[in-house]
């Protein structure tokens, strides 16, 4: 896969890391100027909250891509492995239904129902520019849900639980005692 496609395939990750880095720096700046100069930028808190909301919903889509959303799975313990992905795919149909309905609702809200004066208190722009993340991120998430199920069922890939990835690293690191003494 080319670099370009890699970036596109992980677009949420790039967006989120950028947003996270920016709002963390903004908040740090705010702490610094407040404690050192008794001064506050009135727009920092509001802007960082809006960036945070974007970060959260794109992050949720990225988590969907990684298959990271928590499920309760102990009840499948005695089922043959081959069946589980079909049951989960069926459950994911509800997810798709929910997302599609939510995208419809959010578009209706933003374009038809939202008050025309509803703007940022400290920066002036209309809040639909912030809310627009909802239809975008939930559409993207729906695509990710379908993508993951396609990979699992059609391509037969075994998506690893991202919580378990840490474990592999831990194993690797503990297998190498040099690392401890460093």
């Amino acid at each position: 896969m080319t670099k370009f496609w890699y970036v596109i395939d992980n677009i949420e990750s790039y967006i989120c890391r950028t947003l996270l880095a920016i709002f963390v720096c903004l908040l740090f700046l705010q702490v610094i100027v407040r404690t050192l100069f008794d001064f506050s930028f009135s727009w920092v808190e509001e802007l960082s909250i809006y960036m945070f909301v974007w970060f959260v919903f794109f992050g949720a889509s990225y988590a969907a891509k990684k298959g990271a959303h928590n499920r309760v799975t102990f009840q499948f313990k005695f089922l043959p492995n081959g069946y589980i992905k079909y049951i989960e795919a069926f459950a994911d149909l509800f997810w798709v239904f929910f997302n599609v309905y939510f995208v419809y609702l959010s578009i209706d809200f933003i374009f038809n129902k939202m008050n025309r004066f509803q703007s940022s208190q400290t920066m002036g722009f209309h809040l639909s520019w912030v809310y627009i993340v909802l239809p975008i991120a939930f559409s993207l998430m729906t695509f990710r849900v379908l993508q993951v199920n396609y990979k699992k069922i059609v391509l037969g890939e075994d998506l690893r639980d991202p919580d378990a990835i840490d474990l592999e690293e831990i194993r690797a690191e503990t297998a190498n005692p040099e690392q401890e003494k460093k």
């Binding site: 499920r71 589980i84 459950a91 994911d92 509800f94 997810w95 309905y101 939510f102 209706d108 909802l134």
Partner: peptide, 30 residues
């Protein structure tokens, strides 16, 4: 949850269905 839906989906869908059952507009979700 029993059919392995993510927790967030189980919460969202059951609430959405309850809203629809009550005849209330779920637009407040947004």
């Amino acid at each position: 949850m029993a059919i392995g839906a993510p927790i967030t989906v189980a919460l969202g869908v059951s609430t959405l269905l309850s809203f629809l059952y009550l005849g209330e507009n779920p637009i407040k979700f947004v």
